[in-house]
């Protein structure tokens, strides 16, 4: 399955504790260009913390992260430049509430990339079309559904032309009937060759979109493999049990 491009992200021995609670223990992996990795596992096992340690929104206690050959950890003020290349999508969207959808996408282009207003507007229009929301460009976040808001936040991150996208439970705050539209957008990105790290509880989605699934437990990568390996090979019991539990839990009554 690993016929993707060069390694663009390298995580080496990341550890992080909050007080006496160790949330990440010596996590290492690499990500190749165009690859989609899905992180699954019980709540509180450090999946979201891991994503935030990658772009340094949370500073890890030890370990190193490299984007291409540039170190992201201990980057000093260069971190602002490096973060532009790692788009992040949050569970709660975190759209800028005082700005329309279009301005949400434009603002970092204007303030961070110092684009011309007309170029930024054009880019914002392009990214909003890409997530199917050009007709909502002038709506404020409060006027959007959860699914629309999350798609705008994906457009906002994509507009920076990142090398890798980090999705932190992108559908967990959505009503079930709204998750589909967001997952479709992400699947589209995978088809277009975007490199992505996705923390998710949507097992069907993870199995269909991921090149590799990493099952995390107690701050460690407990098991990892391609979706096929996880579902067929012996030795992935914990992952399979976890997936089974999630499916039983999320299946609607009467569905079987």
């Amino acid at each position: 399955m690993h016929t993707k491009g060069d390694i663009i992200l390298r995580v080496e021995g990341l550890s992080k504790s909050f007080g006496s609670l160790q949330v990440l223990r010596d996590i290492s992996f690499t990500v190749r260009k165009g690859e989609t990795k899905c992180f699954i596992g019980p709540s509180g096992t450090g999946k979201s913390t891991l994503l935030r340690c990658i772009n340094q929104l949370t500073v890890p206690d030890s370990g190193r992260v490299f984007l291409f050959d540039q170190e992201v950890t201990n980057a000093g003020p260069r971190i602002n430049e490096l973060r532009q290349r790692m788009g992040m999508v949050f569970q709660n969207f975190n759209l800028f509430d005082h700005l329309t959808a279009r301005k949400n996408v434009e603002i970092a282009l204007l303030r961070v990339k110092r684009m011309e207003a007309s170029a930024a507007r054009e880019k914002a229009g392009f990214e909003l079309r890409r997530v199917g929301l050009e007709d909502k460009a002038d709506q404020y976040p409060a006027q959007l559904s959860g699914g629309q808001a999350q798609r705008v936040s994906i457009a906002r991150a994509l507009a920076m032309d990142p090398d890798v996208m980090l999705f932190d439970e992108p559908t967990s705050a959505l009503d079930p009937e709204l998750t589909g539209e967001v997952l479709e957008v992400i699947k589209g990105l995978a088809r277009d060759g975007m490199t992505m790290l996705i923390v998710t509880h949507e097992m069907g989605f993870a199995l269909s979109v991921a090149d590799e699934i990493l099952f995390m437990e107690n701050g460690q990568i407990a098991e990892r493999g391609t979706p096929e390996e996880l579902m067929t090979n012996p030795g992935f019991d914990r992952t399979r049990r976890f997936i089974g539990r999630i499916r039983d839990f999320t299946r609607a009554p009467g569905e079987g």
């Binding site: 975190n94 603002i107 961070v112």
Partner: peptide, 26 residues
């Protein structure tokens, strides 16, 4: 909410850019 600052920083804004463009207007 803290998420506003996190989102701004994740886009590559410095803390003061985030304050000026996102926090203060709100």
């Amino acid at each position: 909410p803290d998420g506003q600052m996190l989102a701004a920083r994740s886009l590559g804004m410095s803390q003061w850019q985030a304050i000026g463009s996102v926090i203060l207007p709100q």
